[in-house]
């Protein structure tokens, strides 16, 4: 979620809450004989508030499971998740007196740090990455459809290659019997080296097919092809430049088509990369959050009971 001026109310509220908690914490920690402690009344209040905030933040996942329930707009829940999740961290620190403790408490504290840090990273990524994606991937497609798009690109490239090969074959087949005879003997006719022209066409067709089979098809068809020459724009440009030298100028637009297909594939790879960055942090944040809530509940029961 983009954090902008629409978050002002939440920001002010959160900061005010943290300030109030801090203001209460200072005399509390100075007057307590053993310093701030989670077992004291004030400490329990901090802990309870932090747990409530974390619980609310955790409920976002459940809210998303029922998107059409009219229980508040999803963006309100998301704002709550962000800011209440944020405020829970200082509250827990006030609850624990800035100590990590041992055993379960220590594990909980580290989990909190992981959840908080991953959440901050996530918030930063969600603030910047959508704009970056929009700017750098103009041909963005639906993430789940990328595999299918890759196959379409392969089919498209295959069509272009077939057309170019057919055009080259057409040039050869249209040659007269005399030209063919001259070609076989590599002679000249009327001052024009006919034979070499025909040989170039046949050779070019074979080279083009070979390029497609060895380089382009594996690159376009597969994801995770970072190490391949066509994944690098400058190397790709030089490879296509060589192809242009092989082919007559009237077929150069076809080479441009192939080059564009590779460019589109690079964009798809970039989209995959950005998508993973944009959503990858959730792989840490969500399990850690569930663990935190679960262990937090265990901690609360154990602390209150024993």
């Amino acid at each position: 979620m983009r954090i902008d001026q629409t978050h002002r109310t939440w920001f002010i509220g959160t900061m005010a809450g943290v300030l109030v908690a801090a203001v209460i914490y200072v005399p509390y920690t100075l007057t307590s004989p053993e310093g701030a402690n989670g077992g004291t009344a004030v400490g329990l209040v901090y802990g309870s508030l932090a747990s409530a905030c974390m619980l609310f933040a955790g409920l976002l996942g459940a809210r998303k499971k029922v998107p059409i329930w009219r229980i508040g707009r999803a963006q309100t829940w998301m704002r709550g998740h962000l800011w209440l999740g944020f405020v829970s961290f200082p509250l827990i620190l006030f609850h624990s007196g800035f100590r990590f403790g041992i055993g379960l408490t220590r594990a909980l504290m580290w989990l909190l740090v992981v959840v908080f840090a991953s959440g901050i990273v996530g918030a930063i990524l969600q603030h910047f990455m959508p704009r970056l994606t929009t700017e750098r991937i103009p041909l963005e497609t639906i993430y789940e459809q990328i595999g299918r798009v890759r196959l379409q690109l392969v089919a498209e490239a295959q069509t272009v290659i077939d057309e170019v090969s057919a055009a080259l074959a057409g040039n050869v087949s249209q040659a007269t019997a005399q030209q063919r005879a001259a070609s076989a003997s590599a002679g000249t006719m009327g001052g024009v080296t006919v034979a070499s022209g025909l040989q170039v066409d046949e050779g070019a067709s074979a080279q083009l097919q070979e390029f497609f089979r060895r380089e382009m098809q594996p690159y376009v068809a597969n994801g995770g092809s970072r190490g391949m020459p066509l994944a690098d724009r400058s190397r790709s440009q030089s490879m296509f430049q060589q192809l242009r030298l092989l082919l007559p100028p009237n077929l150069h637009p076809a080479i441009e088509d192939l080059e564009n297909i590779c460019e589109e594939k690079r964009e798809l790879d970039r989209q995959v990369q950005y998508h993973r960055i944009l959503h990858g942090w959730l792989l840490v944040h969500i399990p850690a959050s569930y663990a935190l809530l679960l262990l937090g509940a265990v901690h609360a029961v154990m602390a209150l009971r024993y």
Partner: peptide, 11 residues
């Protein structure tokens, strides 16, 4: 409000 808009968490 349409559900798609209501359910968008990112505004």
């Amino acid at each position: 409000e349409p559900s798609c808009v209501y359910a968008c968490p990112h505004d």
